[in-house]
Design a protein around this nucleic acid. Structure first.
Lengths: 184, 184
DNA sequence: TTACAATTTTCATATCTTTTGAAATGAGTA
DNA sequence: TACTCATTTCAAAAGATATGAAAATTGTAA
């Protein structure tokens, strides 16, 4: 009986390790740093509220590193601080809903990355437009560049509009995606 | 007249610089390194076939760095080598179609990142399933983890299916996305 | 075919980024 | 208020990325 329990414990830890490693790779997909991703992965798969020491021990990373990355995770909204009464330490737990985590990350990335890019692109477009360049805007080099900037702008605006709709309603997003993924 | 030409040249270079900087930031979104992104950005916005020396001069980066990153860009398929007769040097030019570039990058990332993640996730699921754990799979800690792995698997499978459909046909992808982005 | 010259690639070194861990700060208890 | 335990900060170490000159490659001419 005792051995069985130990076995289960070991196996679970083994699976968790695989998961953390997986999440580490997933980091680049979500646009968060590998260590930040590993910490979040551990919190997600364990489903528990863990202390800094728990995380340090489990992932073998330094206290400072855990502290920094937990702050970032809380900032992102993927993890929240939890207090246990009678315990002075802080505990941390992850969101549990995959879709919620996804939309959270997506909306942050939109704000942090896509929005500034769109702003710059629009400025580039303006600087290549006839209003700024006058007659010279008609010359090949300017026209070509204008066209390429514009194509990109159209593309990103589309992505942006899509994202906008996503964040307005999880439900409709889910349904639309599920439809798209399955329909023949 | 001369001054006007110089003005145009300067202004175009100025816009190109902004664009390269923008693309540099875009790198994290596409999952390619900043320098690789900058080089690609320059090739895209200039629309020309440039030599290594052109790129070194324009972006102020070393020969080795340009060489390495151009190889990667060619590997990714975003850039192709061009030969000019009577010139020993190699030139490089970017794809021009934004959608083509996007699907190219997306398909590579799917293959390099999502596919391995799905493989690992399925293994994790198997290792938590009743077939592996026997009666212990019913215990709380195992069941909880199984459920979380499974939820993630469902989510990623959906994304994967969506991507699959994308790569089968650009046209249908475009239409679907445009629909989704605009419909009320 | 061989020697030469121009171009590209490689890799040891230098630069920049991330992580560590111990000291400083902060927060809760006696 | 003083003490203890927990968290944050930051200078130094480790790791990742870029540089540039030497090695390899490729094309040209004797």
């Amino acid at each position: 009986m005792k051995t069985h329990k130990l076995d289960l414990q070991t196996r679970l830890e083994n699976v968790e390790d695989q998961f953390v490693e997986l999440w580490n790779n997933m980091g680049s997909l979500w646009g968060i740093s590998p260590t930040m991703a590993r910490i979040h992965g551990l919190l997600y798969i364990s489903g528990a509220a863990l202390s800094m020491d728990d995380i340090m021990g489990r992932l073998v990373i330094s206290r400072g590193n855990v502290s920094m990355n937990l702050s970032k995770l809380v900032e992102w909204g993927l993890v929240r601080r939890v207090h246990k009464r009678g315990d002075r330490r802080e505990y941390f737990e992850s969101l549990t809903d995959v879709w919620e985590m996804f939309t959270l990350v997506a909306s942050q990335r939109k704000r942090r990355e896509i929005d500034p890019i769109l702003t710059t692109l629009r400025r580039c477009k303006d600087e290549l437009a006839p209003e700024t360049l006058g007659a010279q805007a008609a010359r090949e080099p300017a026209r070509e560049r204008f066209q390429r900037v514009n194509e990109l702008l159209k593309f990103l605006s589309l992505v942006d509009g899509l994202a906008q709709r996503f964040f307005e309603s999880h439900r409709s997003l889910r349904e639309a995606i599920q439809l798209l993924a399955k329909e023949e």
